[in-house]
């Protein structure tokens, strides 16, 4: 922030703390109500009703769930490694939340204004894997261990195409900063990055599903094979922390997609020129609408597709997605070379 330079240190710290409080509050609220929205949409997509008992239209259901989770018995298995077992859900949640600090929600609202936004998100995704793999190991049960191993190998192999498809975006913007990425793509010939980088977008979308362990790539918590995967031995609020981490990382991925490929808070120049009244919409609302669409897509896909087999999952990453993202990278390089 340009204003921050002239402020004394304690005021600056106070401003950052207020920003963190706003972002945390908004996202925890969103994560709770995404659970409600997911149950409702999944229900309606299967011609059911979804939750509707607690409060009007079941709107108080997330609060009821929270209270239930808080009052449940906190079980630590006798076979478990106690310390690791207690740390693991915190790791997952922390490294999911930290990602929010480098994402700009508004042209001038960003908690940590670092130049390496995209790389930091990738690094924290890599660290977040440890939460899952340690949860799997420390539970002392074979289902948990298998779930943790599956999750780790899945996230490892999908991180490569994810970063390669992001490399195309980074090359196009010539910057790691998410704000620069938005500004460059809005003023470019195509307006938004989806049109030149449709391959990269598809690869990123699939990897986003795999990175957040969502259906159809929810093998680590495949109910039919592994009870609940790495969450099997967890109960009460520790299990709630895992779910919170999953939903927040879903939001991070949706934010990344809408910022890197759909122009973030801005409309492409051709749309803004054709319909000038769009400029009156507040930027954060535009970003939120795009994010809500992708969250809906996450739920929609979960309602529709069956789960992949594990060898299909692996071969899809290494044989299809990585070559596709490399081709995407070449296309971006060609565009840059032609100077479009």
């Amino acid at each position: 922030m340009a204003l921050g330079e002239s402020l004394p240190l304690h005021l600056e710290i106070l401003i950052v703390l207020i920003k963190i409080a706003i972002v945390l509050g908004v996202f925890l609220f969103h994560a709770a109500y995404t659970v409600y929205a997911e149950r409702k949409i999944l229900g309606r997509m299967q011609a059911r009703l979804g939750p509707r008992e607690v409060g009007p239209y079941g709107l108080l259901q997330p609060i009821a769930d929270l209270v239930k989770l808080l009052f449940k018995e906190d079980i630590v298995p006798a076979e478990a490694h106690k310390t690791l077992f207690k740390i693991a859900p915190l790791l997952v949640l922390t490294f999911a939340i930290v990602n929010l600090s480098v994402i700009p929600f508004h042209p001038s609202f960003i908690i940590a204004d670092v130049n390496l936004g995209v790389l930091l998100i990738l690094a924290f995704a890599g660290l977040g894997t440890y939460g899952i793999i340690l949860a799997g190991y420390s539970s002392g049960s074979k289902y948990s261990l298998l779930g943790g191993l599956r999750s780790a190998s899945q996230i490892l192999s999908y991180e490569i195409p994810l970063s390669l498809s992001l490399a195309g975006v980074i090359l196009y913007a010539e910057s790691f900063h998410l704000r620069d990425i938005v500004e460059v793509q809005v003023n470019s010939l195509f307006g938004i990055n989806v049109f030149p980088q449709i391959l990269g977008f598809i690869v990123f979308l699939i990897c986003a599903f795999a990175e957040t362990n969502r259906a159809p790539f929810d093998l680590p918590e495949a109910e039919s094979e592994l009870v609940a995967g790495y969450i099997t031995e967890y109960s009460g609020f520790r299990m709630g922390l895992f779910f919170l981490g999953e939903y927040i990382s879903m939001y991070v991925m949706a934010l990344l997609i809408s910022i890197c490929y759909f122009g973030g808070w801005a409309f492409p120049w051709w749309l803004a020129n054709a319909l000038p009244f769009l400029k009156a919409i507040p930027p954060t609302l535009v970003l939120a609408l795009k994010v809500y669409f992708f969250i809906f897509l996450f739920i929609w896909v979960r309602a529709t597709f069956p789960r992949y087999r594990f060898d299909q999952l692996m071969s899809m990453s290494w044989k299809i997605l990585i070559p596709l993202s490399l081709i995407n990278f070449l296309i971006v390089a060609l565009i840059k070379w032609l100077g479009v």
């Binding site: 309606r44 997509m45 011609a47 059911r48 929609w300 529709t304």
Partner: peptide, 19 residues
């Protein structure tokens, strides 16, 4: 096939629930 599957669930979203 994938898009058709997505369309089916989208249609069901606007159907009256059978519950």
């Amino acid at each position: 096939d994938l898009l058709g599957g997505l369309l089916i669930t989208l249609k069901t979203l606007f159907r009256k629930p059978v519950t």
